[in-house]
Write a protein that binds this DNA or RNA. Structure first.
Length: 188
DNA sequence: ATCTTCGGACCCTCAATTTT
DNA sequence: AAATTGAGGGTCCGAAGATG
């Protein structure tokens, strides 16, 4: 369910307290708004289909396969597959719709229907991590920058100096190349 | 300090319903 | 038929607990 507008692009990593990308300059993650500021709130973007690994961990996925999170945790491309979506039920009666006035406000109508159980999907165990994981961040939907180490900036967040550029490539054999690596700054 | 877990806020899709 | 509504089914933020 992509919002097809801006992207939060925060990397969606597992450790908000330790994840420098949460406040990196590259992050567009402005939401939630500050309580004291006027309510300007960007929509959170979502991928249409998270991969099964991200889904289990309730973590941000991305359209690329393998996704950044699976790359980070060194899942094989074969393990980074779209989750299966259930088919929406049909024939569900909904009752009369609420009328709205010109301003879009609801006109009260007591038509309470029984509320089904809307418990969220379970968040299963996160994938095994690996030691010394390199930092990974978005660049495009199908590629990413990597860097190590991160350089703390004097302001909020971290300076972002990609050392190389990886572009996952789907080979004609159906296999995923680990990616081409370009030195940062090189033209290609 | 870093990683893992997971509650629940947020988002999109699309069938049901209403309006034209 | 087109427009609108709103629930279903999904993603993923972020706080808290666990671990090294």
């Amino acid at each position: 369910m992509p919002s097809s507008d801006e992207k939060s692009a925060d990397g969606g990593d597992d450790s908000p307290t330790s994840d420098p990308f949460q406040s990196s300059p590259a992050s567009l993650h402005i939401y939630p708004s500050l309580p004291t500021s006027p309510t300007v709130r960007l929509k959170r973007s979502q991928v249409k289909n998270a991969c099964t690994n991200c889904q289990k961990a309730c973590k941000k996925c991305d359209p690329a396969r393998p996704c950044l999170r699976c790359v980070k945790y060194r899942f094989t491309p074969e393990e980074c597959v779209d989750s299966q979506r259930k088919e929406r039920k049909k024939g569900v009666k909904r009752g009369p719709y609420k009328k709205r006035d010109a301003k879009g406000n609801n006109i009260a109508q007591n038509d309470s229907l029984p509320q089904p159980d809307t418990s969220p999907p379970p968040c299963g165990p996160a994938p095994a991590t690996f030691a010394g994981s390199m930092a990974v961040e978005y660049a495009t939907e199908t590629s990413f920058y990597g860097q190590f180490p991160l350089l703390p900036s004097d302001k909020s967040g971290y300076l972002y100096h990609p050392q190389f550029y990886l572009a996952p490539v789907l080979l004609s054999t159906g296999q995923w190349d680990e990616g081409f690596m370009y030195p940062h700054g090189s033209s290609h």
